[in-house]
């Protein structure tokens, strides 16, 4: 339904643009501060543009961060793929092959995504130590896969509920079994849901801090920990933490800028609807 631009629309447009500017203030401040030389960073002049651009903070931040970005990439990609894959299978089972007790199992699974991790932290690292998984990326991947299962299961289950049972029955009559139905019916329809789940999981895992700081040795630390090291250590001036923040944020921001549409579209289908 198309309406002509009215006073109302102009007011809406203006207000939205003003709010957008406000939302971008932290970006301005971050980029601005990151490009100043340490000597120029000062509370009273925080808003002024740098007198000359100092890219050195980015060079320093990059040389320090490169290995941790690699860790985060391995971690986030592996854990996202595994948890999404398992979530897809779980969702398929819960949705299309209800078994005795599955009605109880679902809420029990979903509950796992809401727990405060402080309530499991100590037993968790003791378990990882005992299984010799502590400290490296495999252990951290395992942790993120397990605690990612509830949300991926839930999201896929909601998506698969949209696929009519008649379609499955038709395939079954054609002789497809459990695996065949999944392979030929569910999988081809799983593209958009997979994207939503992957976007969600990737950003969650990339941004996670508590597990990252307590469960890794230095050579396996993800980027959030490296950033906290840079910002919270004896680092003196604000240019380095700001440049580091930009580097740490780039991958997930890029995902939201380029794939945000899918995410918005998927949200309703996924996390809201039971």
């Amino acid at each position: 339904m198309k309406r002509r631009p009215s006073l109302f629309s102009v007011a809406v447009q203006t207000l939205a643009v003003l709010l957008a500017v406000a939302y971008l203030i932290p970006v301005y401040m971050t980029l601005n501060t990151s490009l100043k030389s340490p000597a120029e960073i000062n509370l009273p002049t925080a808003w002024q543009l740098p007198s000359e651009l100092n890219w050195a903070s980015y060079v320093t931040a990059w040389t320090r961060f490169a290995p941790y970005i690699k860790n985060s990439l391995i971690l986030a990609v592996a854990a996202t793929l595994i948890s999404a894959g398992m979530g897809a299978l779980n969702g398929y089972v819960l949705c299309k092959y209800p078994f005795p007790g599955s009605a109880v199992v679902l809420p029990l699974i979903v509950f796992g995504m809401f727990i405060p991790y402080q309530a499991i932290l100590v037993p968790l690292f003791q378990f990882l130590q005992r299984t010799r998984l502590y400290g490296g990326l495999p252990g951290l991947i395992l942790v993120h896969v397990v605690y990612g299962l509830p949300i991926t299961t839930l999201l896929f289950r909601s998506f698969y509920a949209e696929i009519p049972d008649e379609l499955l029955n038709a395939a079954r009559i054609d002789g497809a079994g459990f695996a065949g139905v999944f392979r030929h019916i569910m999988l081809p329809l799983s593209g958009p849901p997979f994207l939503v789940v992957a976007i969600w999981q990737f950003t969650q895992i990339w941004n996670e801090f508590l597990f990252a700081v307590t469960l890794t040795r230095p050579d396996a630390q993800p980027i959030t920990v490296a950033l906290a090291n840079l910002a919270g250590g004896q680092a003196v001036s604000w240019n380095l933490p700001m440049a580091g923040s930009v580097l740490a944020a780039l991958p997930t921001v890029a995902i939201y800028v380029f794939l945000g549409r899918y995410f918005v579209r998927g949200l309703l289908a996924g996390s809201i609807k039971g």
Partner: peptide, 23 residues
């Protein structure tokens, strides 16, 4: 505009905290 309003959500709390501490 939708992207502008949505992008902060893609940041980690550590990044948000660092930036806002300065702001």
């Amino acid at each position: 505009l939708r992207t502008v309003f949505l992008y902060p959500m893609s940041l980690s709390f550590v990044v948000t905290g660092t930036v806002w501490r300065w702001l």
